[in-house]
Amino acid sequence: MSVLDVRGLSKNFGSLEVTRNVSFALEEGARCALIGPNGAGKTTLLNLISGRLQPTAGTIRVAGRDVTRAPEAARVQAGLGRTFQITSLFRRLTVHENLALAVREHQGVARLLWPSRRVRARVDARVAGILTTLRLEADAQTPVEILPYGVQRMVELGVALALEPKLLLLDEPAAGVPRDDVGIIFDAIAQLPPSMAVLLIEHDIDVVFRFASRIAVLVAGAILVEGTPAEISQHAEVRALYLGESRHG
C-alpha cells in the first residue's frame, strides 16, 4: 500500500489550469523531489494533497484512505505533515509553544480543559526531544518572530515533525535562508526517520540529486517526466527546460 497515491489530479483557477492530470505514488520511506520552474504549480500540487485547496478532478489517497474531499485535519490524522514555502508559524509565541501546539494535536490532548500533570509532562518531553534533534534548545523560550530566518525555518520543519507524519511534504524548506545556514537545514532533512516518506520541493539541483531517489519534473502543471536522478539528468527536455537554467528561484 502506498503512503500517497495521487490519480488524475487537476486544479483550475477560473480558466487557468494550474494542475493537469497529475498521477504519482510514494511508498513508505520514499525520498522524492518535485522540481520545476517558478509558477509550474508545485506549491499548488502540495496544497491539493494537504487539503488546503480542493481539486477540480482526481483522487488523493493517504495511507490507503481516500481523502480527496476530507478536511485538512483528517489528512493529518491519516499521517500527513507539511511545511510552507513562506514560513507559517505562531510568530508571537515561543519556539517551545510552537512545537507544543503541534505535539498536543498529535497526542490528541489539545482540546483538554483539565490536562493532568502526566499529559503535560508527556507533551513537554516530546517537545524537548524535537528541540534536541533540531538543536533548538537554546531558543526554546524565544518568541519566533525575533529569531533569525534560518532558525525560523528549522522551527517550521519542527512543527511538521511534531506530527510524526508517515508522509512529509516540504515546500522549499531553505527558501530565503542565507547561504551559510542552508546546510544545517538539509542536514536535518537528511536525518529524517527512514520510514517517513518525504516529498521535497526544491530549486537547488545539487541538493535534489543528493537527497532524492526519485525525481518528478513538473512543467506547466503537468508531470513532464518522473524517474531516478540518473534518468532525469539524461532527459533531453529536462536539460533544456530546467537544468540549463540552474540559477533558479
Partner: peptide, 13 residues
C-alpha cells in the same frame, strides 16, 4: 495567531 497553520497541524478549528 495563525489559523491556517492550526488547520495544517490537524486542529479541528
Amino acid at each position: 495567531e495563525n489559523e491556517p497553520r492550526m488547520r495544517a497541524i490537524g486542529a479541528p478549528v
